[in-house]
Amino acid sequence: MTEKKIRVLVAKPGLDGHDRGVKIIARALRDAGMEVIYTGLRQTPEMIAAAAEQEDVDVIGLSILSGAHNTLCARLMELLREKGMQDVLVLLGGTIPDVDAPGLKQMGIAEIFLPGTSTQEIVNFVRERAGQKA
């Protein structure tokens, strides 16, 4: 019996166009054997929640380098709750100040990955936390 592949939606919410990180993550997760869907740039939280529901993903990886993370994450988590998708693992990467981390985790963001994180660390985290469910 083959193991079910972990399905990941990687997304760029908001107006930020810095996509170097998100593209590297998408490729690294794919190379690690996961099913990866990249939304492209400038997605609203509504678009991301809808895509996550439609693609039936296990994980959503958000990349935000614009400083708008508090607003955008709060809205996305609210939408996921409304859709009954609390079991989706939501990860955030980017320039995220330490002081914002507790609030973001309280919203339900499972982990925050700062610049300098190795791709292996992210792959391991996703496997560990989403592997059993998939």
């Binding site: 609203t44 708008a68 607003t71």
Partner: peptide
């Protein structure tokens, strides 16, 4: 900031959370 760079006013829906940030 990003709304200005993308040609949106500060009160546009897509500007939410981005005004004056970067």
């Amino acid at each position: 900031d990003l709304p200005t760079l993308m040609g949106y006013d500060s009160d546009h829906a897509l500007s939410e959370g981005e005004v004056g940030k970067c």
